[in-house]
Write a protein that binds this DNA or RNA. Structure first.
Lengths: 198, 198
DNA sequence: TTAATTAATGAACGTTCGTTCATTTTTCCA
DNA sequence: TGGAAAAATGAACGAACGTTCATTAATTAA
């Protein structure tokens, strides 16, 4: 018989990742030291190296989990086919919830830019791109006015959503409401309906 | 006779600011050391302190210039009254040109977040807010569909514009084209005209 | 219970950081 | 041209950084 999966194999590693995700999300990568992470766990700085080869690898592991979390959330919004705009709105809702949540994992993916950490920049960028591909799919499914650039629409949407990390404070408009209005504006415009300029 | 304005009074200080703006914009605040700045000028680290009290003060000075540059650019777009949407588009065009330009000053204002530098966070935030007030004015002048949140529209627009720092590469769509399409999408929507969902 | 494996220690390493300061060099105006 | 003011030097400071490693403690499997 195969030995049962080792119990709690990843438990201590997990604890490191949890606090690293939180600190990276809250203070950024460069402003967070390994000593900060160790201190938050009541542990010595050297302990990190029993689980990770370097600080950059810690970030990479956080990124992987973060992309997984937010990717799963958006995937959940994509299945169960209603019309493409509603699907997009649901995906935006999930995306916002993730990047504004208490969990640091997803927040790190938006807050820390790949080029901030050259040692793993390529891998971070690939993870990010893999996630964002979902929005390419979502937008490809839309019926758009002729001449509309889907690429620019994607960037516009992601920018509008991700920038919320800069201004959002809990207690303001809920993520669901933000998603609804952003998508509505991008779909039908904020100008009064019926008005068209020549 | 008043003494002529001291010739080049600000010349050396200016040179420090120029390279600091460039490095802060390119690599971020924490990833840029005073030694990097000094090295780029062929000068000793201590030389910085003949002009600035601390690294944070260097950033603050860069921020002030940056907010001034981008503010002037947008102010220029706001006078000469055409219709409010065209004015907004021109302002977005200027905003994009500034934050994607070769000059680091304006880029720093978008790239470096106030809370990244606690020593001067309040002052940075105030400078930022003073600049962004222009967009409040611009959006207040728009005729909008009932129920549209002007605040959220402003955040959406600024997010869409500012996020371009993450994806924009020279040679892609020009700032003028980006501004035109972003504003068009937010005004009339990306969906085919005439289509409305129930 | 014991042996092997995993986790963490604690001290230190070399480096870099922001910063200080007495001294020297450069610049500018009278 | 001389003297004041501005600018930069160069060496050093203490602190913090990421990282290493022989050693000890804790956990797990047989």
């Amino acid at each position: 018989m195969q030995p049962a999966r080792k119990t709690q194999e990843t438990a201590p590693r997990q604890r490191f990742l949890d606090v690293a995700a939180d600190l990276f999300a809250r203070n950024g990568y460069h402003a967070t030291s390994l000593r900060d992470i160790a201190r938050a766990l009541g542990v010595t700085p050297g302990a990190v190296y029993a689980h990770f080869a370097s600080k950059a690898r810690v970030l990479l592991a956080v990124y992987e989990t973060g992309v997984g979390q937010i990717g799963d959330a958006v995937d959940g919004a994509m299945q169960g086919s209603t019309d493409p705009w509603s699907t997009l709105e649901r995906a935006c809702h999930r995306h916002l919830e993730a990047i504004l949540s208490d969990s640091g994992y997803a927040r790190v993916v938006i807050r820390v830019l790949p080029e901030d950490v050259p040692e793993v920049a390529g891998q971070l960028a690939r993870l990010r791109a893999g996630y964002e591909a979902r929005f390419r799919t979502l937008i490809d499914a839309l019926d758009l006015a002729p001449g509309t650039s889907r690429t620019l629409l994607r960037f516009t949407l992601l920018g509008a959503l991700n920038w919320s990390q800069v201004w959002y404070r809990p207690g303001l408009t809920a993520p669901a409401d933000i998603a609804r209005e952003v998508v509505r504006n991008l779909r039908n415009g904020a100008a009064p309906h019926g008005e068209e300029h020549e």
